[in-house]
């Protein structure tokens, strides 16, 4: 097993444990909202998730536009599936299924 890969995983895993457990273990009373760091941390999540969505979808649009219809269907169905129950899991599965079906319809030769 690649030692660099193990080191990367251990560092990332330790940080993940720290991010998830330490704020609970070190909590002393109620957190004070409104601070500079609190604002930065609160914005990190939305910024990171928005970035990752764009970064994962952008290669289908740029530099060459590939599979625009499956992408549009996948996005649309993900949003529509999310709305009724606000379930991340259901929306993810429905969006992926819609993308796969649209891909099969757009590329019948590949799908058979």
């Amino acid at each position: 097993m690649n030692p660099d890969l193990i080191l990367m995983a251990v560092l990332a895993g330790l940080a993940n444990w720290g991010f998830r457990a330490l704020p609970i273990l070190l909590m002393r009373g109620e957190a004070r909202p409104g601070g500079l760091m609190a604002g930065f941390l609160a914005s990190t999540g939305p910024a990171a998730i928005a970035t990752l969505f764009v970064a994962s979808a952008l290669p289908r649009l740029w530099p060459e536009q590939t599979d625009l219809v499956p992408l549009a269907m996948g996005v649309l169905i993900t949003v529509l599936a999310f709305l009724p129950r606000r379930s991340v899991v259901v929306a993810t599965l429905a969006g992926s299924l819609a993308y796969g079906i649209a891909f099969a319809l757009m590329h019948p030769a590949l799908a058979t």
Binding site: A42, S56, V79, S96, Y99, G100
Partner: peptide
Amino acid sequence: PAVSAGLDFMLSALFLALLLSILSRAALP
């Protein structure tokens, strides 16, 4: 290939769904 394409899109769908789950006016900027 269609199953593979759907699985490839799963990550984008996951991020989009997570984004929807935390969407708020304060997070818009």
